[in-house]
Amino acid sequence: MAPIYLDYNASTPIDPAVALAMRPFLDEAFGNPSSAHWASTPAKTALEHARGQIAALLGCAPDGIVFTSGGSEANNLAIKGTFFALRHKGEHIVTTTVEHPAVLAPCRFLEQLGAAVTYVPVDSTGRVDPEDVRRAITPGTILISVMHANNEVGTIQLIEELGALAREHGVRFHTDAAQSAGKIATKVDTLGVDLLTIAGHKLYAPKGVGALYVRGGARLEPLIHGAGHEHGRRAGTESALLAVGLGAACALASDLEPMARVHALRDRFWDALQEGFGDRIVLNGHPQHRLPNTLSVSFVGMIGAELLSRLDGVAASTGSACHAGRVELSPVLAAMDVPEKVGMGAVRFSLGRATTETEIDTIVDQLRAVTS
């Protein structure tokens, strides 16, 4: 049986059009984009074209785009860069309990350096209440960081409301859009964000490249100091190869029409699981406000990892881990107060552009067979 990939939230394959755009930069255009001679010109031109493609996806000016090595670096630059640039104004950061480790770990690191961090809870669907964020703000708050959509359960946060709240209090606002870019709209002015993270390998570009949007005038202390690349915000010679890949992927991602088909497939999958399992299956995350490709479900009374191991050639993720005979829920499910009996059977299926109806039907048949 052909393998079936349903782990697109973990990583996507490189789109053929992206690979084609990158190909010339493996053989030619090898010059340093910062040099001032004939060998650098093609690389510099390609780099800036890619910057414009990313800016078009986000609805911002190209000079607001900073190339990074991926989503983790972009999140670290947004959080640490803000803290070190603005700590003279305050040292308080507000975030949530369901953020990606690339947000939570920098926050915990900064706590060792004197930062005060408030981790706002979420409800049972994984959503944060903007009023809880409002109550968390203090005169010393310099940054609010709330992810656009959760990588595990797909829940979409009320970013526009949170952005308005941040502006009202004069607080810088960051959102991690690594999971949402290319799946739902991510225009920075609509969202009301000052900083926004994207990761290449989440939207059909290579691993090892990402970007941080920085609203004009938002000063950041660089994580990497050197020759002042990226307008002094991230030192290090840029890779035209990787930038071209990310730019081409963002150009493709600007068209959200393919996600309508993915959304329909996701709903077909959920309907079939409900029909086949009834009250033995539970949806994790918000029933309406979640990513169109993400289906996190719990098979009640089962262990997700064991269930996946019985499937033939299916790549997906679990929401729990078994250590020494004990099941531990993921931090996200724990923060949502998912009961252990439910959460231990969590499996995340994340669909992509290449997912087919036949694959969905095959997995449903397999699940019925291994649980009967």
Rank of each mutant, 00 (worst) to 15 (best):
R233F: 10
R233Q: 12
R234C: 02
R234P: 00
A235P: 00
G236L: 03
G236K: 04
G236A: 11
E238M: 13
S239R: 11
S239Q: 13
L241Q: 04
L242H: 10
A243H: 11
V244E: 10
G245A: 10
L246I: 14
C250M: 09
A251W: 02
A251H: 05
L252F: 09
S254V: 05
L256D: 03
E257T: 15
P258V: 15
M259T: 02
A260T: 12
A260S: 12
R261C: 07
V262E: 06
H263Y: 14
A264C: 10
L265E: 04
L265T: 00
D267C: 04
D267K: 06
R268M: 11
W270M: 08
W270H: 09
D271K: 15
A272T: 03
L273K: 05
L273P: 05
E275V: 12
G276Q: 05
G276L: 14
F277H: 11
F277W: 13
G278D: 14
D279E: 08
D279P: 00
R280M: 06
L283R: 15
N284R: 02
N284F: 08
N284W: 02
G285N: 05
P287L: 05
P287Q: 07
P287T: 03
Q288K: 15
Q288N: 05
R290Y: 03
L291A: 05
L291S: 02
L291M: 14
